[in-house]
Write a protein that binds this DNA or RNA. Sequence first.
RNA 1: GGACGCAUAGCUCAGUUGGGAGAGCACCGCCCUUACAAGGCGGGGGUCGCAAGUUCAAGCCUUGCUGCGUCCACCA
Length: 936
Amino acid sequence: MEKTFNPSAIEKACYRHWESEGMFRPSGKGTPYCILLPPPNVTGSLHMGHAFQHTIMDALIRYHRMQGDNTLWQCGTDHAGIATQMVVERQLNADGLTRHDLGREKFVERVWEWKEHSGGTITRQMRRLGTSPDWDREVFTMDENLSAAVQEVFIQLYDEGLIYRGQRLVNWDPALLTAVSDLEVINEEENGHMWHLRYPIEGSDEQLIVATTRPETMLGDAAVAVHPEDERYQHLIGKNVMLPIVDRLIPIIADDYVDPEFGTGCVKITPAHDFNDYDMGKRHDLPMINILTKDAKINSNAPGELQGLDRFDARRRVVEMFQSLELLVEIKPHKLKVPRGDRSGVVIEPFLTDQWYVAIESLAKPAIQAVENGEVRFVPENWNKTYYQWMRNIQDWCISRQLWWGHRIPAWYDNDGNVYVGSDESSVRQKYHLDSAIVLMQDEDVLDTWFSSALWPFATMGWPEKTEELAAFVPSSVLVTGFDIIFFWVARMIMMTKKFTGEIPFRDIYITGLIRDEHGDKMSKSKGNVLDPIDLIDGIELEALVSKRTSGMMQPQLAEKVEKNTRKQFPNGISAYGTDALRFTFTALASTSRDINFDMQRVEGYRNFCNKIWNAARFVLMNCEGQDTGNVIKSEGENGFPSKDNDADLELSIFDRWIWSRFNNMLQQLQEHIKDYRFDLVAQVVYEFTWNQYCDWYLELSKPVLNSDASTDRQKRGTRHTLINVFEELTRVLHPFMPFITEEVWKKLQPLSVYQESNDSIMLASYPQISVEREDADAEAQIEWVKNFIVGVRNIRGEMDISPSKKLPVLLRNASQKDMLILGDTSAFLLTLAKLESINVLKDEQAPACASALLGEMEILIPMAGLIDTEAELARLNKNASKLEKDIQRVAGKLSNENFTSKAPAHVIDKEREKLYQAEQQLGKVKQQIEKIERL
RNA sequence: GGACGCAUAGCUCAGUUGGGAGAGCACCGCCCUUACAAGGCGGGGGUCGCAAGUUCAAGCCUUGCUGCGUCCACCA
């Protein structure tokens, strides 16, 4: 093996092997376990958020696969209607063309070409990440069978009256020329103005002053409203105002929607261009006067000179006209929420059009119940509040989009505008008994992308056919996703799956945090802080990184700053950390926090962890390859742990039993944490065991056995046996989180281990199980003693600046029988690990001047002669003494408090007493030692 | 306006029914010891945002406050 772990040398071949051997397919045996991949945009590329979530999903999938479950990771990609269409339109624009130049059919062909061309990027990147979905079952939301499911659902909902078509005010995107749903509108506060306009009253000298943030909409005013009890305006209710510029009489109405305190207490009502006004218009039977064209220019319902003006130009013009008519009262600066399209970024217009809607309320009810009664569980649980809040106030869902890329709405119209819904024209004719003489035209619109995504849990399983997969994998086990799509996707899947299968779509919803940069800022192209997961795996040169970050920017003026920051942050580019380090980083960052700050230094740390594993493997192999590892007893022990009465072939030392006990304990904790989706804690316990227990202690403890002539063959076999088998199991424990390095290492270790079930791949091996037999409290206590002994000596050595190579003599004073027993078993180890020349137990004789450490009540003494500075040792002892004094003060205070002793539970009091006793004993020893040294 | 979240070491974060403040990185010192210098050993560092309350005991529970953030709704 190489001296340093080199991920790029192994990852690709390893993955090819897994995939070509079909290892990602469900086994068909065991309990079904299924995760649905949130389908990424087919033409997209993998960003940090994907990489994070995919890592979590893959860890769960690999874990359950190794547990023997019938495991399916259902993957696929989304056609992403608006996003994808925009990309292709932009390409056309670059050639001076629009989609209309091509026509619908050609344009859609062109999008399919683009999908074929760039559609593989994200799935290729997922492979680089080592993910193990069943690629054979990969689906695209516009595949035939998916499209059929979409049609089926649409038709069924329509036939039940749950989908309807109607003219309403919708969120209209004037750039994309389509309706969008409420969720696709981002409301952000911007600086604007409030215009106060004077409206003259018919047959009176009086005037009303209305306040508006959108003066141009006055062209569509249908009324002016005041509060019914507003005394200022009582006498005017029922009169008319003469709308300036358009010279139209409109009524003054009373409606308690109006807040008399706000502005002037008079509101101009524009039912065709404002959601609240629309409702009021309905209540008062006002005309809906649309003044805009689809691209938000003033239409022919306005006076001629304004027609054709863009809405913002019209705004300026209208204000000027009011001014010249002397009807402009004032203009105040005003902060207001401006609705913008999440894709286009342009200001959304409330616009009166015919659209298709899902009547959502009856679907929402069972979906709310499913969470209320615990069938569906959010993790962390708090997210159910967010879910309830939205679901309980849910509005009908506008599902039609005026786009060309997507599922065409399966509805046909005759010349009279009658609607017929069915899967195709001929079935429509049959269904509605339509003569062939009647001309039918299909609806031009397509469905909201999320309509098909909502069917993902069952449409991917073959619905409406009654397939085996449908039976096995609905409901799926857990959905791993971000809170940003709880409404867009999660809620809608619950509603649709409940409706069409009667089942819940998934049992758990694990809501992950959002990946941000190391300072908590959102990663964005314009900030120039975007990291590409593939760059962290493969590394990237500085120049390439700079050009990547500065190319294709929406605001090129920011490029200079981005370049500067990039050069500062990554003067040497980014090094290649490999997939496993990246994955382990994501695992370790997956706490319950909703924002996750991605720190490059963590990746570096976990790259080092990979290297640690690699080198530990080298050590194990060096000592076990070609050696007797005691595997002969494999049939008589459980899980590679020899039964205690079987000592025919090897002898397990106390260290061996200790590391097995710790391993078992680690595994126990890990399994709990996985159950709780606490991957940060999973990473922590497995890292701690691997590095701080196995490598730092066990490997070091194995050396004296393996290198000493004094150890018997049985002892050496026992150590090798433990060395190899703990590590072999450890690689299996680590595999779901670090698939590549564990595969590579395991292939070398496994032949030397007792585990023989599968030698094709670690990913098909079974996951290690907790074993009560391995628990060994006695061994743990004794090794704790050994560790403390060694640490005590090291502490003196470290603080006294004694060279690590200098062998020290050690004297023990006040050793108990128990101390002597452990000492007898372990002195060889103490000598090696603490670098000792000798250990002598003092009986009654006087000790020379010594530096000391305490192990319980036993004193570990190191003669100072020529080695240790008196002052330094005094300082060290005083530091210890003051620490002990502080402890004693606190504990004694507690114990002398009668309230504490009378009210606290007995075991807590006992613990405190014991603590006090120990500390007092130790302090006494330390003080004696101080006196002694002071006398020198 | 409503809902939710966060505040613990220089940085990024753990801290499970309340009972001796932790990790990684960074920092300081010593060491190229035959798995690993991407390493080993040792060390320094925190009024747990502020205030009050409950309790024998609060980082943890309650209330209020401050600061930051997210989502939903929205007054023209």
